[in-house]
């Protein structure tokens, strides 16, 4: 079956700066275009995709910025204060993705014959949170073609953002008894990290350490 994702048919319901945390814990009540198992919603310069993985939702954003198009999955602000320490550490084999991020090296995620180089970037002027990002080359903004490409690979970026959360756990295991806010509710940090682990395990893209 051919999947069709036309930008013009995606409901414009996103806020201007909306960049959701990779994990959703409640359904998004806003209207959407359902295509190929994903829910699509758009804003001025972005389109969000949400994949249902009961009881979770896995979310990424296709963002058009300055003529470039990127697929982004946010690991949230949980690591923001850790970056100075991670840079000081330099690298650690128990945290390959974060170590690569400190070194500025993209990491390859594969499924079947497809390989995608994904960068993990710390919070900065562009994004407030640690994010997994891949650029779409030769994309013509938010075109139907770039959305179709994003549809095919967005789960690889989502997986990278989830693996970052798994690696975060190596820093705080056992997770402190703290609550974090997500989707307007408050959840124990350990529940969020357990969910990230379960979701990462359910995605068949694999990360090969380099």
């Amino acid at each position: 079956m051919t999947i069709k994702i036309r930008l013009s048919t995606i409901p414009h319901v996103l806020a201007d700066d909306e960049l959701p945390f990779v994990l959703g814990f409640a359904p998004d009540p806003r209207t959407c275009l359902e295509a190929g198992g994903g829910e699509y919603r758009r804003g001025i310069d972005r389109v969000s995709v949400s994949w249902k993985l009961e009881p979770l939702y896995l979310r990424a954003t296709i963002l058009n910025s300055g003529g470039s198009t990127h697929i982004i999955a946010s690991s949230g602000p949980i690591l923001n204060d850790w970056w100075p320490l991670l840079r000081r550490e330099g690298g650690n084999p128990t945290r390959p993705l974060l170590s690569a991020a400190v070194a500025g090296r993209p990491q390859t995620f594969k499924r079947d014959d497809v390989a995608i180089d994904i960068s993990i970037v710390p919070p900065g002027p562009l994004f407030e949170s640690t994010s997994a990002i891949v650029g779409i080359e030769r994309a013509d903004g938010l075109s139907d073609d770039s959305l179709l490409f994003a549809h095919a690979i967005s789960l690889s970026v989502i997986k990278a953002a989830l693996v970052v959360l798994e690696e975060y756990r190596t820093l705080v295991d056992p997770a402190p008894e703290l609550d974090v806010s997500a989707d307007g509710t408050s959840l124990p940090l350990s529940v969020v990290l357990d969910s990230a682990h379960a979701a990462a395990g359910a995605i068949d893209w694999t990360h090969s350490v380099s």
């Binding site: 204060d81 850790w82 320490l85 991670l86 000081r88 550490e89 650690n92 820093l171 705080v172 056992p174």
Partner: peptide, 20 residues
């Protein structure tokens, strides 16, 4: 003791665990 955070071992029997 299970060290957390970014771990440093400056000398035997001494562990620094850095967190924010």
């Amino acid at each position: 003791h299970s060290p957390v955070g970014v771990v440093e071992r400056p000398s035997p029997g001494l562990i620094y665990s850095h967190t924010p």
